[in-house]
C-alpha cells in the first residue's frame, strides 16, 4: 500500500466524466459485473481477494484500463480462464 486504487485526495484526474448513457456501455461489462457477484456468492474467493488482485495490476496498466477490464483481469487471475 498504497496501490493505484487508493486515490482519495489525489490531484490530476481531471473532470468528472459526462454521464447520460446506460450503466453498462457493453454487454461484456454487465456480464463481468454479474460474474464477480456470482463467484463471490459461490465462495470461489472473497471480495477482499478480488480487490487485492485488482490492486496488484501495475499502476500504469491499471489507470490505462477501462474500469471493468480491471475487474475482468482480476477475475481471470482468480478463477483462470
Amino acid at each position: 500500500m498504497a496501490y493505484a486504487n487508493d486515490v482519495g485526495g489525489m490531484h490530476g484526474f481531471g473532470d468528472l466524466p459526462e454521464e447520460h448513457g446506460p450503466l453498462f456501455e457493453s454487454v461484456w461489462e454487465a456480464q463481468t459485473f454479474v460474474l464477480n457477484q456470482a463467484f463471490v456468492a459461490a465462495g470461489a474467493y472473497t471480495l477482499d481477494e478480488f480487490r487485492a488482485t485488482m490492486e496488484r495490476i501495475p499502476p500504469g496498466e491499471y489507470y490505462a484500463m477501462p474500469y471493468y477490464e480491471r475487474w475482468l483481469t482480476a477475475l481471470e487471475t482468480l478463477v483462470g480462464s
Partner: peptide
C-alpha cells in the same frame, strides 16, 4: 504502510 491489502485509505 503494509505491502499487502489494507482498507485504511492513506489520506
Amino acid at each position: 504502510n503494509p505491502p499487502g491489502h489494507n482498507r485504511a485509505p492513506r489520506y
